[in-house]
């Protein structure tokens, strides 16, 4: 799982998400030089929405926490991890390698999700 990820503070989160929403082309290949595809997962009511997200390789996924409680993103193999996301915080990660990435919240492990890269 090679790629970059970033933790985005509260103030930037909305702007980043908006920018990504404009750029979303999650299923198609993207041309060299074009804006990389992006997709978003919302954390709300102690759940990842959508719980399962299918994306094309190279897509950057941004999670935004809309709960009053803090949450985290950690893949079950621990290779991708966000640190604490307080209300309004966002975390993004680019998935380059096809596969199914299972993840959960390290504070509330009953919260689970999958990123399917294909």
């Amino acid at each position: 799982m090679t790629s970059a990820h970033t933790l985005v503070g509260t103030a930037l989160a909305t702007a980043v998400l908006l920018a990504m929403a404009v750029a979303v082309t999650p299923y198609g290949p993207f041309a060299a030089g074009a804006t990389p595809p992006a997709a978003a997962v919302t954390i709300e009511e102690f759940a990842f929405v959508p719980g399962d997200l299918t994306i094309a390789p190279g897509t950057t996924v941004a999670w935004v926490n809309k709960d009053e409680a803090p949450h985290t993103i950690i893949t079950d193999d621990k290779t991708v991890r966000s640190g604490a996301l307080d209300t309004g915080d966002a975390f993004s990660h680019q998935f380059t390698t096809p596969g199914t990435y299972s993840y959960h919240c390290s504070l509330h492990p009953q919260m689970t999700g999958h990123i399917i890269v294909q």
Partner: peptide
């Protein structure tokens, strides 16, 4: 006898 346990590490997905 007081025993302090740590049960908050290495959570498994879906777990306790």
């Amino acid at each position: 006898h007081f025993t302090g346990l740590v049960n908050v590490l290495d959570f498994k997905a879906g777990g306790l």
